[in-house]
Amino acid sequence: MLSRIKKSYEIKESLITPEDIYNERRNILKLMGILGLSSVAGIDILEANASQNIQINQNNYPYKIDLEFNKTPLTPYQKATTYNNFYEFGMQKDDPYHRAEVLKTSPWDLVIDGEVEKPIKISLEDMIKRFGLKERIYHFRCVEAWSMNIPWLGFELGKLIDFVRPKSNAKFVLFETVVQEDMPAIKNPSIAAYIKFPYKEGLRLDEAKNLLTMLAVGMYGKVLPNQNGAPLRLVVPWKYGFKNIKSIVRMTLVEKMPISTWNKLDSSEYGFYANVNPDVPHPRWSQANERFIGEGFSFDRIPTKLFNGYGEEVAKMYAGMDLKRNY
C-alpha cells in the first residue's frame, strides 16, 4: 500500500479543519461569486480572464485554490483583520483597523527599477491579469511570538521578477511602502515613536524568487483590507511578520544588502534575514513557542518550528550559514 509523504508545511491531521466546514466555506465563496467555473475545473485563471477587465474596486477577485496549501485551521477573518501591526496607523494592535480607512488604494502602481533590464511602472490591474491569482493558506508567525493561519490571494513574486529580467549583478530586492499625507504617523510622527517612513524591507534575490514567496492582493477570498496592507503586500511565510512589508509601491533590485527599517532601528533584535528559528531567542523573550490565534479565546501556546515549518522548501538556501549569527 502506497503512503503519501506530507509536505513540511502541512498541518497534522488532528488539526485540519473538518471537511464539512471547509466545504461550507467553499460553498459560501461560490455563492459570493469568488469561485467561478475556472477555479472549480482547474482552468488557469490567467487564461480564463485574459480578455476580461478585472475591476480592482470590487469586493472579490477571481482565483483558484492551490490545493497543496489548503488544509489547515484558519484564523477567523475578524481576528486577522483587527489584530496586526501597521505602524503608519499607530502602534496598538487595533490602530490599523480603526484608522486605515484613510489609505488611498486606487489607482495603484508599482515601480520596479535598479539592476534590471526592463524597468517598469505597472498597475495592480495589469499584474493581476498577467500573473493570475491563487489562494494559499500560510502559517504567519510574528516576531512578537503570536501566529495565525491566513488564506492569501496572490501570485509568485518570482514571476514578476523574471518579467523585468534582473541583471547578473542583482543580488537583493529592496521593497518600499507608500507614504501618504493622511496617514496618522505621517501627520504626527509621535504616533509611531518617530519611525522614519517609507518603511523599507529587503530579501536576497533567491529568497524573493522562491516558489513560496508571494505578492498578495487579497485574503479570505476578498480584496485586502487597508489595515492588512492593501492593495499589495509581501508574504514570505518562513520569516517573521515584519519582513512582510505592506502597501508596496517600489521594488529596487540592488547589488548590496539593503538596510531595512527594523534592522536599522535595532540590528541586535531584528536581523536582516529574520528567519523563524525557535533556537534563537529575541533579546526580550523566547521564540521557542507562540500563541496561535484561532477560534475562541484560547491562549494555548504551540511549539515554533524552524523556518516556520517550511524548511523542506527553503532550508537549502541557507546551507552552510550560521543561522544564529545570520538571524
Rank of each mutant, 00 (worst) to 15 (best):
112 I>L: 01
173 V>S: 05
154 G>A: 07
127 M>P: 06
290 E>V: 13
28 I>M: 12
260 S>C: 01
180 Q>T: 07
162 D>W: 04
322 D>P: 00
48 A>I: 10
170 A>K: 05
236 V>A: 10
276 V>H: 05
151 P>W: 00
324 K>E: 12
14 S>D: 08
137 I>L: 01
323 L>R: 04
214 M>I: 00
296 G>S: 10
278 P>K: 13
99 R>P: 01
84 N>K: 05
235 V>F: 10
257 M>R: 13
234 L>K: 09
169 N>Y: 09
197 F>L: 08
82 T>E: 02
202 G>A: 10
3 S>P: 07
313 E>V: 00
173 V>M: 07
50 A>Q: 15
238 W>M: 04
3 S>A: 14
296 G>D: 10
94 D>H: 12
250 R>I: 02
130 R>Q: 14
67 L>M: 10
32 M>H: 15
310 Y>K: 04
203 L>W: 01
74 L>D: 03
196 K>S: 12
30 K>M: 13
79 K>F: 06
34 I>S: 14
294 G>D: 14
100 A>P: 02
260 S>E: 00
78 Q>M: 13
235 V>Q: 09
268 S>D: 11
229 G>P: 06
125 E>C: 08
294 G>S: 11
182 D>K: 15
178 V>T: 11
41 A>Q: 13
66 D>T: 00
167 K>Y: 06
239 K>A: 06
79 K>Y: 03
257 M>V: 07
5 I>F: 07
285 W>S: 06
248 I>L: 06
120 I>F: 04
238 W>S: 03
63 Y>T: 00
77 Y>L: 09
309 G>H: 00
245 I>C: 05
92 Q>D: 12
277 N>M: 07
7 K>Y: 13
165 R>I: 15
143 V>C: 09
178 V>A: 14
137 I>Y: 00
140 F>Y: 05
151 P>N: 01
37 L>V: 13
142 C>T: 04
293 I>Y: 02
196 K>F: 09
115 E>D: 13
17 T>E: 13
270 Y>P: 04
281 P>V: 02
87 Y>H: 14
112 I>N: 02
112 I>W: 00
177 T>M: 09
112 I>D: 00
198 P>V: 01
29 L>F: 11
160 L>Q: 07
314 V>S: 00
116 V>N: 03
64 K>W: 12
215 L>S: 04
149 N>R: 09
28 I>V: 15
192 A>S: 15
117 E>I: 06
116 V>H: 04
238 W>K: 01
76 P>S: 01
57 N>H: 12
285 W>F: 11
10 E>V: 09
